[in-house]
């Protein structure tokens, strides 16, 4: 779609970036400031032409998320006791249970939210971070789209934690049936939060900088 109401800055034939022009663009509100400005005059956000610590923070949160994801899969997410008989369900066990009962649609949602999305996110963020230095098959538009998807979809992994919370609050019938949360719920929630922070730390402008470097 055409950009209505916006013209290329300075009438140059090719697109100019704020950095090329020696200016600073604000990522929160779009306002452009002179180089050396510390905080955006309009919205007060901290300005940086390119955040030099972006990749460090991406990898730090990524690793923290991966570490928290391991116990999230090994320990039980849900403790179900019926008539004194206690069953422990891990994340994958819970999804399999649903499938056994014939609830394939819901099983698919749980599986996607707790396994496919987190694992896909780890791979996607690592790929994006590595692609800045290494040659990649996916173009800039593809990687830009990938980053958008990762940022959008990350929070939906929290579904399983909410499911555990609601089940534990609802099913409290003493001896007859009780559901309690397992420790994996906490580590899984941490893992989701860490990977969200990792994706947010990634500065998408770095993807497009690589393009300029290549085409020169």
């Amino acid at each position: 779609m055409q950009a209505h109401g916006l013209e290329d800055a300075l009438g140059t034939p090719r697109l100019l970036t704020a950095r090329d022009a020696g200016l600073l663009g604000c990522r929160a509100c779009g306002r452009v400031s002179a180089a050396g400005t510390g905080a955006c005059a309009r919205c007060g956000a901290r300005l940086a032409s390119r955040d030099p610590t972006s990749l460090q923070r991406v990898w730090a949160w990524w690793l923290a998320g991966l570490i928290a994801y391991i116990p999230a899969n090994l320990y039980p997410m849900l403790l179900t006791s019926r008539f004194g008989h206690v069953r422990e369900n891990t994340i994958i066990g819970g999804a399999l249970d649903l499938a056994h009962h014939g609830d394939y649609g819901v099983a698919a949602i749980v599986f996607a939210a707790s396994v496919l999305i987190p694992v896909g996110k780890f791979l996607a963020i690592a790929y994006l971070a590595l692609s800045l230095k290494l040659p990649t098959a996916l173009g800039r538009h593809g990687r830009h789209r990938l980053h958008e998807v990762v940022e959008f979809i990350g929070r939906w992994s929290m579904i399983d934690v909410f499911v555990v919370a609601i089940l534990s609050a609802l099913v409290q019938f003493g001896f007859a049936a009780t559901i309690n949360p397992g420790i994996a719920a906490a580590t899984f929630a941490l893992s989701v939060a860490f990977t969200m922070l990792s994706a947010q730390s990634f500065d998408p402008r770095l993807i497009w900088d690589a393009e300029e470097r290549d085409s020169r």
Binding site: A9, R19, V32, R205
Partner: peptide, 24 residues
């Protein structure tokens, strides 16, 4: 020399610079 930043906006995702006009 860096141009005057007033009336310019930068894309938050890729840093491309635009001159701002009224958008209906």
């Amino acid at each position: 020399a860096a141009p005057d930043p007033t009336g310019l906006i930068a894309c938050p995702t890729c840093d491309a610079l635009y001159r701002e006009r009224r958008i209906g």
